[in-house]
């Protein structure tokens, strides 16, 4: 599918912009740009992705292999919306483990029942 075709009708479209000073034009430019990104940023604020969750686990001291395995399984179980790091801390609290040990236990297939509860 292709986009629309249109001749260069700049002169007929620019009427409302001509009266603006340069400073006003710049301000209007940024007002429009901010308006365009607003919903994109809102989606980012309220959503997550496998890569974000893996990046959280990297920051918690897990290797890329460990982060991949944990996030894949959480995604499969539909748990990602709670946050991978949060889930690991839940297991750590429930089983009185360090965060690292909780992650290792999950990698070993243990304690997933804590999370589905």
């Amino acid at each position: 599918m292709s986009g629309i075709e249109r001749p260069d009708d700049f002169e007929s479209r620019r009427g409302h912009l001509r009266k603006l000073s340069d400073a006003e034009l710049h301000a209007y430019f940024w007002e429009l740009a901010d308006k365009i990104v607003e919903p994109l940023i809102e989606e980012a604020r309220t959503h997550t992705t496998p890569s974000i969750e893996r990046s959280v686990l990297l920051r918690m001291g897990f290797s890329s292999f460990e982060a991949n395995a944990l996030v894949d399984k959480m995604k499969m179980l539909g748990l990602l919306g709670r946050g991978a790091g949060h889930l690991i801390l839940k297991v750590a609290t429930a089983k009185n483990l360090s965060a690292r040990a909780a992650g290792e236990a999950l990698l070993g297939g243990h304690y997933w029942e804590v999370l589905s509860a």
Binding site: H47, T48, T49, G81, A84, H86, A99
Partner: peptide
């Protein structure tokens, strides 16, 4: 692959 964050969503990390 984009997932809605649940009300108890958490990420215990900086940045």
């Amino acid at each position: 692959t984009v997932v809605l964050r649940a009300s108890d969503y958490g990420a215990p990390v900086c940045s």
